[in-house]
Design a protein around this nucleic acid. Structure first.
Lengths: 219, 219
DNA sequence: AGGGGTCTGTGAACTGGAACACATTTACCA
DNA sequence: TGGTAAATGTGTTCCAGTTCACAGACCCCT
């Protein structure tokens, strides 16, 4: 599929669902830079991220790449082709070494047949994903670049060992994710850098003043 | 939810599903201009359009309206709150007198409990809807106004009694639907009018040269 | 008939962000 | 320890599309 929620683990799966899925799913690993699938590929599996970061993106006709999301532990992706047989709608690539859990359609139905009570929970998960996608749609269309960027930063930042929140992405990756040019992103970031809202470094950004960023984001 | 497919009837529901839903659902009518629900409303029902046209839209913080779709016979909407309890993500209003079929969450589960074989079909329908939404997301972000507009025209045009394809929407409604200003839409339409691709009239547009439009749309 | 309201056409000015064009800086590795 | 590629900073130009500002056109209503 397409747009993803980092915090699947914050709205955790029920113990039952988690166990059922884990039993039916197959673990797998990807090397850094490895492509799992591409738009138009056939495939009917959903994947859960156990470790590492996966990048989901689409390639436009003119070659432009749109990053849809960067997923880490707890997130899932690939649900569209799982539910509706047909080509994948996006490309999934490992930004770093990743460990995934893979469940294909047969596996899903195996689980649900044996455990009909889980149907409702799965449907709710899907509903949540649809909510998320429509939110993205809005933001992309309605919000000006600074807001979109601030939101992405807040969404994607993860806690480091030293307690600060930061993210490891280049300006151009970030630009893909917010649907803007690399230059525009650079300009915004260096402005915020000067104002002390964040600290940019080659390939990484550390959030210093989340409050102010949230403010810019309109949250 | 959000973005809808006119052609649910082209990918028809199975006879079984259709019957099951019809039995569990409740028919209802809306007067022209009547609002069925608004963003933030509570509600857990999905609706099927039997007759008339429903407009689905979202209101941005700044008051701007984004039209998401205009649905007629065969389409459904409201599936997000059906699957995931929570506020509605869009507003549904009747453009004209409408006749709908309403099915709430309890109804859905009633149907699926009694008829587990339908689970797979329902999931596939949802998957299709997700495909559709992500397509829209792309188009909105990637395509320039003329392409978006031409696609909308082709998508929304319906056959009239005299065999031509036309649509009954004002320029500003159309502008909302393609995420552009009324003026920009007017300019494009009157240019195409002059070139003979279509025939504009107060509140209606008749497609004359679908081939050329498809070409502009990049299809 | 007339008159307000909603549509539609079309200009002119403005603007966010893209595209282009470089100058630096930094990492890394041969 | 240079050398090269990637990542960044910043300015300039350009353009699609918005906003603003009107002028007709058409519609319905009393």
């Amino acid at each position: 599929m397409v747009l993803f929620e980092k915090d699947i683990s914050e709205t955790p799966l029920s113990r039952d669902l988690r166990e059922a899925l884990t039993n039916a799913a197959r673990p797998m690993r990807l090397a850094p830079g490895e492509t799992l699938f591409t738009e138009q590929d056939e495939g009917d599996a959903i994947y859960f991220v156990l470790d590492g970061r996966m990048e989901i993106s689409m390639i436009a006709d003119d070659g432009r790449k749109i990053g849809l999301d960067v997923l880490s532990r707890g997130a899932f992706f690939g649900e569209i082709a799982l539910l509706d047989p047909g080509p994948r709608t996006a490309t999934a690539m490992a930004l770093e070494a990743c460990s995934l859990l893979m469940l294909n359609r047969a596996g899903l139905h195996y689980v649900l047949d044996r455990n009909p009570l889980l149907v409702a929970e799965v449907m709710q998960l899907i509903g949540k994903r649809m909510r998320y996608i429509t939110d993205q749609l809005n933001e992309q269309i309605l919000l000006p670049l600074p807001k979109r960027l601030a939101r992405k930063l807040l969404r994607l930042a993860t806690f480091t060992d030293c307690g600060t929140r930061c993210l490891r992405l280049s300006h151009s990756e970030l630009a893909d994710l917010v649907g803007a040019s690399r230059e525009a992103v650079s300009k915004a970031l260096s402005a915020w850098n000067k104002q002390g809202l964040l600290q940019t470094g080659r390939g990484s950004i550390e959030l210093l003043d989340e409050e102010a960023l949230r403010d810019i984001a309109g949250l």
